[in-house]
């Protein structure tokens, strides 16, 4: 199978969906000829023109609001928020309106919106361009939250997100845009709300998100040489969450490790830990472990950033402790 980058996979998904459905259009800051800060939309304006690849002012609330308004009356907007850190400026529209409008209307309207953004550290971007804020949105009823970890997942999930009739927060990772993986030429979709088992193993269930999936894959190779087989579950969609997949895996392995780049405290790991404690505690042979960033802003310099963010070595270490 051919291999393409994560960036190309996202772009392909958007190109295919825009060709398929004339109601799909994109708006965001510098997404036109410039191709976006991370060059994800590069070239799309040549095919679709400046109306459907709409450069906006630096006005995140306006962007999110225009997405809501246009989705209410016939369009399927894909709004790019350049950095998830800037989504705080759009969060009123997302949290107070997009997430609630269908509910408040008694089901009479639908909001087919995708908010595309990217998060994460690893590029010395500093505290205001490196955060992982997915839980801010996952905590609000009415939003679907998706974090793809591979080019294959990014393409299939984004195509589904664009066809979805509910607001989707689609969170890419800036550190993965250049990563390559197999993506078939022929069309495929990946359903939202379903987890993917990235690796099968009998000893430890590792639930990993976004770029942490890649770290978990790396750790799995090292651990295998020590005779420890981890099973990697990538939820891909954290809201709604495929709980069954996680529970079934824990029932098999008896050990649970959750890994994400967002701060450990009040993070996704706490939710998964609570879920397993509620529904599968009798199957556990060891305490639940969580790995996440330290509870500090993400520092600028690589030395400090590496100290704060989790990596493959942390997963190897935690796995050894769980097996001890």
């Amino acid at each position: 199978m051919r291999e393409i980058t994560y960036r190309e996979a996202v772009r392909e998904a958007m190109r295919e969906e825009m060709r398929r459905d004339s109601a799909v259009f994109q708006l965001g800051e510098d997404i036109g000829v410039f191709g976006g800060s991370y060059k994800v939309t590069l070239g799309l304006v040549d095919e679709f023109g400046t109306e459907r690849i709409l450069d906006t002012p630096l006005a995140e609330a306006g962007i999110a609001g225009a997405a809501v308004g246009s989705a209410l009356v016939g369009m399927r907007p894909v709004a790019e928020i350049m950095y998830i850190d800037f989504s705080t400026l759009a969060s009123d529209m997302i949290i107070n309106t997009a997430a609630k409008m269908r509910f408040m209307s008694g089901g009479t309207i639908k909001l087919p919106i995708v908010i595309r953004t990217q998060e994460g550290g690893g590029v010395s971007a500093g505290p205001q361009h490196s955060q992982c804020l997915e839980m801010m949105f996952a905590h609000v009823p009415g939003l679907i939250v998706v974090l793809p970890a591979t080019p294959y997942d990014a393409k299939g999930l984004l195509k589904s997100a664009i066809r979805e009739d509910n607001p989707v927060i689609f969170i890419e990772h800036k550190g993965m845009y250049a990563s390559k993986g197999p993506v078939p030429e022929e069309e495929y979709l990946i359903p939202l709300g379903k987890a993917d088992m990235k690796r099968e193993g009998k000893d430890i269930t590792v639930v990993a998100l976004s770029r942490s999936v890649l770290f978990a894959m790396e750790a799995a190779e090292r651990l295998a040489r020590e005779g420890i087989e981890i099973e990697i579950i990538d939820p891909m969609t954290i809201k709604p969450l495929d709980r069954e997949c996680i529970i079934q895996s824990v029932k098999k392995t008896g050990r649970l490790l959750i890994v994400h780049e967002a701060c450990k405290m009040y993070g996704f790991g706490a939710e998964v830990a609570a879920l397993v404690a509620d529904e599968a505690i009798d199957y556990l042979d060891a305490p639940i472990k969580r790995i996440g960033a330290l509870d500090v802003p993400i520092p600028f310099g690589m030395r400090l950033e590496n100290f704060v963010l989790p990596n493959a070595g942390d997963i190897v270490e935690a796995a050894r402790q769980l097996m001890a």
């Binding site: 999110a64 609001g65 225009a66 809501v68 308004g69 989705a71 209410l72 369009m75 309106t97």
Partner: peptide
């Protein structure tokens, strides 16, 4: 909030 949503409806 009426303004951004109206802008979106008008854009549509």
């Amino acid at each position: 909030s009426s303004l951004p949503i109206a802008c979106g409806a008008a854009l549509s």
